[in-house]
Write a protein that binds this DNA or RNA. Sequence first.
DNA 1: ATAAACTCTGTAGTCACGTGTAGAGTCAAG
DNA 2: CTTGACTCTACACGTGACTACAGAGTTTAT
Lengths: 174, 174
Amino acid sequence: MAIRNNTATTIADRTNRLSPRTSMKIGEVSQESGVGVEALRFYERSGLLGRPARSQSGYRLYDEGVLERLAFIRKAQFLGFSLDEIRHIISDAEKGASPCDDVRAIVRRRLAEVSERVKEMQRHHRELTRTLEEWDEVGRAPGNICGLIEGTEMQNPSPTSGRVTPKKQRKKTA
Amino acid sequence: MAIRNNTATTIADRTNRLSPRTSMKIGEVSQESGVGVEALRFYERSGLLGRPARSQSGYRLYDEGVLERLAFIRKAQFLGFSLDEIRHIISDAEKGASPCDDVRAIVRRRLAEVSERVKEMQRHHRELTRTLEEWDEVGRAPGNICGLIEGTEMQNPSPTSGRVTPKKQRKKTA
DNA sequence: ATAAACTCTGTAGTCACGTGTAGAGTCAAG
DNA sequence: CTTGACTCTACACGTGACTACAGAGTTTAT
């Protein structure tokens, strides 16, 4: 695995890292931003970054702006935006539209989702706690496989309801 | 798409669905259990179900037991077990070992994870709420892409912290 | 008899977000 | 000149729990 080592700049250069870099290679950007080299290329492929300039030998040469862009992406991710949403926001902004209203709407939606998810998780937590308590009373229950599980009542017979990660739910949940 | 229609039994048969079926075809099992046909075959491939008998023409013929097994699987999923864990539990049970202690341990672990996750989500919820409030004060902030996002302070600069779904972490939940 | 619905096997695709690898070229230092 | 780190492209792989499909055969209803 690549030890992201920065041989393109001198040690002195790296030491006073406040000097503005006008053309950074991908490793440098990775180091500055904390985003992996592969992820940077992936972002570019995904349309999140736009094509950087290239050196004669084909190396990507980034200007400082990319760091701001990456900071934007990370903040948006931090706020729960998917890369897809981020791509839309950036593309809107580049078309001149102010995406802030959409952004607000997305955050509001995300907020509702998180609320819902927390409620689900808390329900699940109570369910698990109750189950463990029951099991402690019961000791070891008889059953085909594990009486503990077999004897447990489900609140909701849907097999999706206990998932730790939410399912994709693209078609039916019948 | 296949409309899981049950032509193997008469309507009368389906109406008094309490009569024990000794050999059900896959569609019937799907209908009774609510597990899709593809999922049933997938479970079999994954070692969760074991090979059913076959008709002369190669159709799977299930006995009633499969419904209990599927109920077990769904309950276990409901409790947060992965199919992998369920497979282990079943395999232990079939080897004669009582897996209940392991089951308890898994549930306890899952419980801790859920707790942690709830706390994270609540933090995230507060963060989003605070952000929205700030944004309402600000109106429409200037910025390269969306000043709202750009002006938002991240609690934790890691890009992973805001994910709605937890990032891979396939080794262990540290 | 024929059409519709079912079933079979085997393989590949989905979702998000990247990571890993192969094989080649480039660059700076000793 | 060689070594080693870096970069390039293009593709495969990883996660979990399924879904989708192709192309064949089978069963049931009319």
